[in-house]
Amino acid sequence: MLKTITQKPDSFLVRILRQDGPGKKSYWQRFRVPYEADMNAISVLQKIAEIATTVEGEKVAPVVWECNCLEEVCGACTMLIGGRVRQACTALVDHLLADNPAEIELRPMTKFPVIRDLLVNRSRIFASLEKIKAWVPVDSYLDMGSGLRQSQEVQQLAYQYSKCMSCGCCMEACPQFLKIELVRKPGETEDRFRAREHTANMRSFMGAHAIAQVELFNTNPIGAMTAFERLEALTAEGGIQTCGNAQNCVKVCPKDIPLTTAIGREGRAATIHMLRKWFDR
């Protein structure tokens, strides 16, 4: 059970690390937010958008951030809250104030380039899903009957991995996952810049989430038919060999996905894959 406050304050302080755009300097701003029951970090940001005035009385633009479902199934609202990477929607104010009654601190993730304020560019997450071919390669979308039968045990294992919402927590916590921030060159078109970014993303470390997705698709009976291709990606540049086994990923995963189990299993699969390739030469 998490700590919670016993005495409800009238208001509380929120400190936010802001940044006006890529490459701009970041700066802190503080806001005083009136306390209401059942608040979370999202309703705090909504309140700040409404107030849009700092404690110094300066009128400022509402804070920019990403969110959607507000019930921790979409993965959009990941940020650093009191220094910990997590979803803003499940960060309840009563718990945050119990940890630190002085203030609530919100910062953007540090492993992804800041677009503005708390909004970061996480296209790299989706690029890694491309890289490992994270899909079941069905022949067509015509009616071919049902999928294969499977045991409850197999389904429950797969479900653990398929709950991954690509939120980025595991990457933020990983010491081997380093930030890539490209700057648009003078005269470079938006499309060219995005293409260059995509290439860089595809070569960089894929992170724990992608390794777990390899486990998901390589254990699916149809996905297993193309396991070779995923193992190729897994052992290529930016693959599983980059993992330093720090095991931070599994501690911060909001969905309790057994990431280190997947890394262990896929590490063995990768070794066998390499050996087989070597002997088959």
Binding site: V138, S146, G147, Q150, Q152, V154, Q155, Y159, I222, G223
Partner: peptide, 22 residues
């Protein structure tokens, strides 16, 4: 029914009965 079959083929992790049916 065909739509569920298709989603099943594409890997949706539908819950299973002890005999392995959806």
């Amino acid at each position: 029914p065909k739509i569920i079959d298709l989603m099943d083929r594409m890997g949706v992790t539908f819950n299973r009965t002890p005999e392995g049916f959806r």
